[in-house]
């Protein structure tokens, strides 16, 4: 494999992810903007957001200065081994930091020292899977600290919010998470949710389900119904863009599930901000990108 071409492709992936929002997110924001009352603070916030998305793309600069945790998912075919991939991805990350697609965002948790190049224990965060076919698939997400701080994990039953171990209990968790976040996670937000799993796998699955398109439909009819219900109910709370009040509190809800042990029932909620930065590509062994996973 020619690592030079892979590195160039990965750098372009990082640039696109940081500077350009996918089409499904832009459409959801445009739809929200149409719904907000004329001259309201909510409409104003969404207008600034919308202008910002346009400017970031034109200037090829970060949509938000918090370029977040770098989360990378790769499906590796036989011609690309994990070690080579990591090395190449990290070179692309260092370059992206140097040219300003990424902020220096990796801090040693013990000493407080910033590594300056976005590398360090656990950074970037990788999730590897074997590829089914011959293509290499790379997906990435940039998740800022403001939104990550509003993520939440519930252990059911939860007396405070009257949530039992069923889908009604899950509903109560999700609405509680939205009210608790208010505008602090830079809403309108998107919820990635996992019902079940352990504390670790639950959060991982909750984040991963955010790769679904905002306007798709859950294959699981029960979860599809819950997603629709939460969207409707959350958007009736009046929290609005940035918590200024208004109609658009959530842009999407995506729910997945994992089996659990009989003693545990976790509901993990990954709160994502409006600057919902995710993208990916598929690439053949020759280095040609056959497809970008999200339309711009």
């Amino acid at each position: 494999m020619e690592t030079k071409i892979l590195q160039a492709n990965l750098l372009e992936l990082i640039r696109r992810t940081s500077a350009e929002l996918p089409g499904d997110v832009k459409q959801a924001i445009a739809k929200g903007l149409r719904k907000e009352k004329k001259d309201s603070s909510g409409q104003y916030a969404l207008q600034v957001i919308s202008d910002n998305i346009g400017m970031a793309k034109v200037n090829s600069l970060p949509i938000c200065q918090d370029t977040g945790t770098i989360i990378c998912y790769a499906e590796l075919p036989s011609w690309c081994d994990e070690k080579t991939f990591r090395k190449t991805y990290e070179r692309a990350v260092v370059k992206a930091t140097k040219v300003g697609y990424l902020r220096q965002n990796s801090v040693d948790s013990i000493t407080g020292v910033n590594s300056g190049n976005n590398l360090g224990p656990g950074n970037p965060a990788y999730h590897f899977h074997p590829a089914k076919g011959k293509s290499l698939t790379v997906k990435m997400m940039l998740k800022g600290g403001g939104s990550e701080n509003m993520s939440a994990q519930y252990s059911l039953p939860d007396n405070r919010i009257g949530a039992g171990r069923d889908l009604e209990g899950v509903r109560r968790c999700l609405l509680d998470a939205v009210v608790n976040a208010q505008g602090k996670g830079c809403g309108p937000g998107i919820l990635g949710v996992c019902v079940g799993g352990d504390r670790g796998s639950g959060y991982v699955a909750a984040k991963e389900t955010l790769f679904r398109l905002l306007d798709d439909k859950n294959d699981d009819k029960r979860l599809a119904k819950l997603e629709r219900q939460i969207m409707k109910e959350a958007n009736s709370l009046g929290i609005g863009p940035m918590g200024f009040g208004g109609e658009t509190t959530l842009l999407g809800v995506k729910i997945t599930h994992r089996n659990r042990v009989p003693a545990s029932f976790f509901v993990s909620v990954a709160y994502m901000c409006w600057a919902f930065r995710r993208n990916g590509f598929q690439m053949g062994e020759g280095g040609k990108i056959s497809r970008w996973l999200y339309e711009s």
Partner: peptide, 13 residues
């Protein structure tokens, strides 16, 4: 005063 969170480009301009 609340500025719009995440609007790094509009505000920098």
């Amino acid at each position: 005063f609340h500025a719009v969170g995440g609007a790094a480009q509009v505000l920098a301009e």
